[in-house]
Design a protein around this nucleic acid. Structure first.
Lengths: 191, 191
DNA sequence: TGCAGCATGTAACCTGTTACATGATTAG
DNA sequence: CTAATCATGTAACAGGTTACATGCTGCA
């Protein structure tokens, strides 16, 4: 069985990238080092063990390219089970807890949705994300109003930063949802 | 010796909170559970070991209150070495790497600066934070322009979220710096 | 010749998660 | 009486960090 599921954001990121195109461990590390996905470490001590776990779980399969040459590389591609697991992971509903504690994971999941989820599911995700973000934004604003005056300057300002950050994300989610409904619904329905 | 330093954001958060007032482990967990500092886990498996590490390093000291009663609690307070270590940690310069990978730590550090750092140091922190954030914002915007058109909708939108997020933080830092210079410099210089 | 990049790994260590465990107090 | 809260811990596990280790290729 080895029902090892997606055990971390790093594993999710790897699956999402491999959904785009097959890559080696080194390729993945290069992506993490040079692109906006730099939240993930490019350290071999993280990437290679994660690849091994995913392969053992049957989500990806690695084939050695050029094993006759002097610089062989193991290229991994997403298996059928991997695609299913990835899609299932992306489909999970957005909770308040996600918004409060795992916003990065939510954005990571969103970034891989094109091509794996239908237009309706993507719209629903954005809507829930906007709603929950706005909800927590209200909580933070209330806390700033009530606790804020008692806090020292930098404490209050840090809290205000949190408010601004969630405000920006809420705005982004609403804007992106509109954009998606206008342009995406017509052509983008590839479940 | 046991030169155990501040080993994680959780430890830093504990030190910062104890700089405000002495607290028990349970008190700390309550703060993490009920306030905007909810990024930190309130799980006893994280908090109590962290307290023990800090105590062993000589940064905090715990005294048992009401050990005669049936519900004793160990209240921790910041020692002299702890205050020094905390201030030293807050003084560290803001690097691009911090802005890209550890923005949360930067905001956490900032939130504790009032009363521990001088007005000039706080201003310098905000200025560097603004500069580095704007710098990385430029990198992200460039990436959105160059790689964006080739990305699927959700990938591009997720990248745009990153841009908006850093934009919001840069704006906040500039605004807060202005505010601080206007109102804080006169009275807030308590190093 | 030497350095940066390609390419893959291992091992020790550390922090946090999850779950379990214990027992007292207070409010309904 | 019983559920929630107060209050403190332990233990297994898992994942990431850091550092080490190896060797080839292409370029200046």
């Amino acid at each position: 069985m080895t029902k090892q599921n997606i055990d971390s954001d790093l594993s999710l990121a790897i699956l999402g990238l491999l959904a785009g195109r097959p890559m080696s461990g080194y390729d993945l590390r290069k992506v993490f080092r040079t692109t906006a996905m730099t939240a993930f470490s490019d350290s071999p001590g993280a990437v290679y063990p994660a690849l091994r776990r995913l392969a053992q779980g049957g989500l990806i399969e690695g084939t050695i390219e050029g094993q006759d040459t002097l610089r062989p590389r193991q290229v991994f591609r997403l298996g059928k089970r991997g695609r299913t697991a990835l899609a299932g992971s992306l489909e999970r509903p957005v909770t308040r807890d996600d918004v409060v504690h795992r916003m990065d994971s939510l954005l990571l999941r969103f970034s891989f949705m094109s091509g794996l989820l239908g237009a309706g599911e993507i719209a629903a995700f954005l809507r829930r994300l906007a709603e929950e973000t706005e909800g927590y934004l209200g909580v933070l604003e209330a806390e700033l109003r009530t606790s804020g005056p008692g806090l020292p300057f930098t404490g209050r300002a840090a809290l205000a930063q949190g408010v601004e950050s969630y405000r920006a994300t809420a705005r982004w989610a609403r804007k992106t949802l509109e954009e998606w409904i206008k342009t995406g619904s017509a052509k983008g329905g590839s479940k």
